[in-house]
Design a protein around this nucleic acid. Structure first.
Length: 466
DNA sequence: ATCGGCTCGCGCAA
DNA sequence: TGCGCGAAGCCGAT
């Protein structure tokens, strides 16, 4: 059995099914998609056409214009590439909460087999835990997110050092290009009545029709979709890979890939990025090790963490030393102490912190290095650790294009000690690692970053993050 | 500017 | 059983 494939129910394949269904949840792309390829292989074996089905509902937590726009921007290119490959494309935009139609059961009712994404967080995790038992057809989840199939690691890893050698041992086997998508039988039937055709110039109008929170504007910096992802990757390889190791922790230098939004929605895969980085590095005599470490080892440590942790978004998921030290400092005085609204509106005494929060509000992500500072300060200035956690998850759910991801939860809990070690004791944090404004000033150009974010705020344009 | 201590527990060698 | 060392640091001594 394919180590990426995981059976979600005990129902058999449906004899007389009209197609094999791929339900895209977390990996909304045609290229380098293990789950789609798995479904295509099954379709060819059963001599059936293949249908790629995706939906966008309006009732997931914090559904808003920013997230909807990014997802919808990806749909037209997906549709084009599927049409070219002879694969059916069905997109259901559920505009109103009251809309009763259950398009998934409608689609699954005619399918010989349902294949979906194995994804350990947010709504996809809940879907995969609850929906397959309500289907009367075999349902299989396939991991297309990780380079090394995440279920090969059967227990929760302690830290990066414990999973790193295991991943490196398996990379020769898995860091390889995938075959092209090929279906023997083309999909010819008309789309079902609930299908919505999306064109680039209709995205805004469709978003406006949805019963979602219209108060969070789309990102001023990131446009969704495959073409935007490919452009970002190209730009990263040509301009940033060579300086990634030395400048990745200097936010004003813009040496990072900015691919996390596309990775989160699956518009591009870690496998494709890793292969492209390795190839570019070989051609140009560069070292891509530091980038691949973050892209593969740390990202897949986060997947390992969420997969093996029932409460992956809770302080209960922390190692015992961290839980205990936070308990011991629960009554420490917080000064200053801010509310969720203070944080959300970037109203603190700290100009760097406010700039990081404004970056989240405007761009929809925070530079990885400053995101640590952002989070450490939310802990320092919140009434309790639990409040801090809830504030950070809320802000990521609502504003971050790379939120709701295994990386998000692992990164947020890292701020409380996950995958880290104890350090010398101090107020509020106990033995959890502390970060200071002085440290940021010492190591990064804080003023250049503040000026940059100020420019974004004044102009609503982002000439820096290209 | 640079260095060591802080402090826990996993993973592995012995 | 003992030892080395870890996802991004801080602080005080030199």
């Amino acid at each position: 059995m394919d180590p990426r494939a995981f059976r979600l129910n005990a129902a058999p394949e449906r004899p007389g099914g009209e197609y094999v269904l791929y339900w895209a949840q977390a990996n909304r792309r045609v290229e380098a998609n293990h789950a789609l390829l798995f479904a295509a292989e099954a379709a060819n074996r059963l001599r059936l056409p293949l249908v790629y089905y995706e939906f966008l509902t309006c009732d997931y937590p914090q559904a808003n214009d920013r997230l909807h726009t990014f997802i919808l921007e990806g749909v037209p290119e997906t549709a084009r590439r599927l049409r070219q490959a002879g694969v059916g494309h069905v997109f259901h935009l559920r505009r109103r909460i009251s809309e009763p139609l259950d398009s998934l059961h409608w689609m699954a009712g005619k399918a010989a087999l349902v294949v979906t994404d194995d994804y350990p967080a947010f709504v996809a995790r809940r879907h995969n835990e609850t929906i397959p038992s309500t289907l009367d057809v075999a349902c299989i989840a396939v991991d297309s997110s990780c380079v090394v199939p995440t279920r090969l690691f059967e227990k929760r890893e302690w830290a990066a050092y414990s999973i790193r050698p295991k991943i490196h041992r398996l990379l020769p086997q898995y860091l390889k290009p995938l075959p092209a998508l090929h279906v023997a039988r083309r999909w010819e039937a008309p789309p079902p009545p609930f299908h919505t055709e999306v064109s680039e110039n209709r995205v805004g109008a469709l978003v406006a029709e949805c019963q979602i929170d219209h108060s969070v504007a789309p990102s001023i910096s990131f446009r969704g979709g495959r073409l935007a992802a490919e452009k970002r990757l190209r730009h990263f390889l040509e301009h940033n890979l060579r300086r990634y190791a030395s400048e990745r922790n200097e936010p004003a230098a813009h040496a990072t890939s900015n691919l996390s939004p596309y990775l989160h929605f699956g518009h591009i895969s870690a496998l494709e990025i890793a292969l492209a980085a390795r190839e570019y590095a070989a051609e140009h005599k560069l070292i891509a090790d530091e980038f691949l470490e973050e892209l593969i080892v740390r990202r897949e440590l986060a997947f390992n963490f969420t997969l093996h942790t029932p409460h992956y978004n809770s302080l209960r998921a922390l190692p015992e030393w961290a839980r205990q030290t936070l308990r011991e400092h629960a009554a420490d005085r917080r000064s200053p102490c801010y509310s969720r609204e203070d944080f959300e509106r970037a109203r603190t005494h700290d100009a760097l912190w406010n700039a990081t929060q404004k970056e989240l509000l405007l761009r929809g992500k925070i530079h990885g290095y400053y995101r640590m500072y952002w989070g450490k300060k939310v802990i320092e200035w919140s009434r309790t650790a639990q409040d801090a956690l809830e504030t950070m998850i809320y802000l990521h759910d609502r504003y971050a294009l790379d939120g709701r991801d295994p990386n998000t939860y692992a990164n947020i809990l890292w701020l409380f000690g996950l995958h880290d070690r104890p350090w010398s004791e101090r107020p509020v944090f106990g033995k959890v690692r502390y970060m200071s404004l002085e440290g940021m000033r010492r190591k990064t150009n804080v003023d250049a970053y503040i000026r940059e974010i100020d420019h974004l705020e004044r102009t609503g344009k982002d000439p820096f993050c290209t």
